[in-house]
Design a protein around this nucleic acid. Structure first.
Length: 358
DNA sequence: AACCCGGGGAT
DNA sequence: ATCCCAGGGTT
C-alpha cells in the first residue's frame, strides 16, 4: 500500500509535468462523448501522428453520431482506408446505429453501458467516462503499462490475464479521482513523450529519484511481455481481369484480414507458384469457361506485404478476356477507373498506385 | 489462454 | 528484422 504522501507527490509531479509538456490535440478540446469515442477508437494501436488526419476527416464528414449512423459501412471503410484494423471501422458504424436506435442518439454515460458497445473494451470505456465526464476510471494502455512497470519495477508480464489485472488495480489506486480526465491524459502523455519504449531520457526525468527501475538499472527490460508474435506466410495470386474498360472485383467477407474490403479475384496458394502452374489449378479453371479466350497482358507485378502477423507474397496478373468467359458470378463487374471509389487494403492500393490507376 | 486483426515509424 | 503504437473480439 502506498502512503498518501507518496501518492500526492506522484500525482502532483505528473500533473505539473503534463501542464508544461502536453501536446495540443483536438480531442482534448472537447467533452463531446461522440468525438472522444471516435478519437479513442482511431487511436487504438495507432500512434497519434498516424490517427490525427483520420480524426479530422471523420469529424468533418460525420460531425455527430447521427451522420455516422446514417452512412453506409462502405463509406466508413473508405474513410478508414489505410489505417488498419478495419473491424474498428465496422464497429463504429454498427455502434453509431445502436446509439441512435437504442439511446436516442445520446451517448450513454454509464461505464457498464458504454463497455457493452461494440469495439469498446475496458481501456476505451474508461477513457470515454473520464474524458467526457471526469468519472474516476483509470485508463490502462500501453503507455500506462510501461510507466507503471518502470516506476514500480514490476516484471509481471503485461500480456497475461493476471498481469493486466495487477496493473489495472495499481493504476486505479494511483488515479487522482477528482481530476480523472487530466490525470489519465497526463500519464499517457508521459509514456508517449518521456517514458518511451527505447532509450528514454532518464537523466532528465521528473521521476528519476523515485523510479524503481531506474535505480536498479532495469528500465530497458520493462515492461515484460511473454508472448512472441508468429508470422504466417501467405501467397496471394490476384487476377486483374479486364474486359474493355471493365474489371472484376469481390468483397472479402470471410473472417480474415481485410474483411469487407474489396479486391481482385484471388487465388491463394500455400506456396509461390508460377503463372504457368496457376492456370492448371482447379481454382483458376473454375473461374474461366474457356482458357483459350484469355490473354496474359504482361508478367505479374510482385510485392511483399508485411503485416504484424502475416507476410503476404502478392502477385498481380493482368488478363484480358470477355465477361461471357467468366463462369462464376460471385464477382462484381465495375469500371476500371472507378476502382478508387471502393475501400481496399493498402496492398491493393499499392498495386493501383504502381499501375498509375490512382 | 491463445489467437486473430493493419499499417507505419523508429531502431 | 524487430518492436511498438491511447486495444478489442473470438474461440
Amino acid at each position: 500500500m502506498l502512503s498518501d504522501n507518496l501518492l500526492n507527490t506522484f500525482r502532483r509531479s505528473l500533473l505539473n509535468w503534463y501542464d508544461s509538456n502536453k501536446r495540443d490535440l483536438p480531442w482534448r478540446e472537447t467533452q463531446d462523448a461522440y468525438k472522444i469515442w471516435l478519437s479513442e477508437i482511431i487511436l487504438q494501436q495507432t500512434r497519434v501522428n498516424q490517427g490525427l488526419a483520420y480524426y479530422n476527416r471523420f469529424i468533418q464528414q460525420f460531425p455527430n453520431v447521427q451522420h455516422l449512423a446514417n452512412s453506409h459501412e462502405e463509406e466508413v471503410l473508405k474513410l478508414w482506408q489505410g489505417l488498419g484494423y478495419y473491424s474498428r471501422a465496422r464497429n463504429i458504424h454498427a455502434t453509431a446505429k445502436t446509439i441512435v436506435s437504442e439511446y436516442n442518439g445520446i451517448f450513454p454515460t454509464d461505464y457498464e453501458e458504454i463497455i457493452r458497445l461494440k469495439g469498446i473494451g475496458d481501456y476505451t470505456a474508461a477513457a470515454i467516462c473520464s474524458f467526457s465526464q471526469n468519472k474516476p476510471y483509470a485508463v490502462v494502455d500501453g503507455n500506462v503499462f510501461r510507466v507503471l512497470a518502470r516506476i514500480f519495477n514490476i516484471d509481471t508480464a503485461i500480456d497475461t490475464t493476471s498481469g493486466k489485472k495487477e496493473f489495472k488495480i495499481l493504476a486505479q489506486s494511483l488515479l487522482d479521482k477528482n481530476k480523472a480526465a487530466v490525470y489519465n491524459q497526463a500519464i499517457m502523455e508521459f509514456g508517449a513523450l518521456q517514458c518511451v519504449p527505447n532509450n528514454p531520457d532518464c537523466e532528465n526525468c521528473i521521476f528519476n529519484y523515485s523510479c524503481s527501475a531506474f535505480a536498479e538499472n532495469k528500465v530497458q527490460y520493462l515492461p515484460v511481455k511473454s508472448k512472441k508474435t508468429k508470422v504466417r506466410e501467405r501467397f496471394f495470386n490476384y487476377l486483374v481481369i479486364l474486359d474493355g474498360s471493365y474489371c472484376f472485383i469481390q468483397k472479402r467477407t470471410e473472417n480474415d484480414v481485410w474483411k469487407n474490403l474489396y479486391e481482385f479475384p484471388l487465388i491463394e496458394t500455400t506456396q509461390k507458384i508460377d503463372f504457368s502452374e496457376l492456370v492448371l489449378t482447379d481454382s483458376f479453371r473454375a473461374i474461366f469457361k474457356n482458357a483459350g479466350d484469355i490473354e496474359l497482358l504482361h508478367n505479374g507485378f510482385y510485392t511483399k506485404h508485411i503485416l504484424s502477423h502475416q507476410k503476404i507474397h502478392a502477385v498481380f496478373y493482368t488478363l484480358k478476356t470477355f465477361s461471357t468467359n467468366i463462369s462464376i458470378n460471385r464477382y462484381e463487374k465495375t469500371f476500371f477507373n472507378k476502382l478508387a471509389n471502393y475501400p481496399v487494403s493498402r496492398l491493393i492500393e499499392i498495386y493501383l498506385e504502381s499501375q498509375k490507376i490512382i
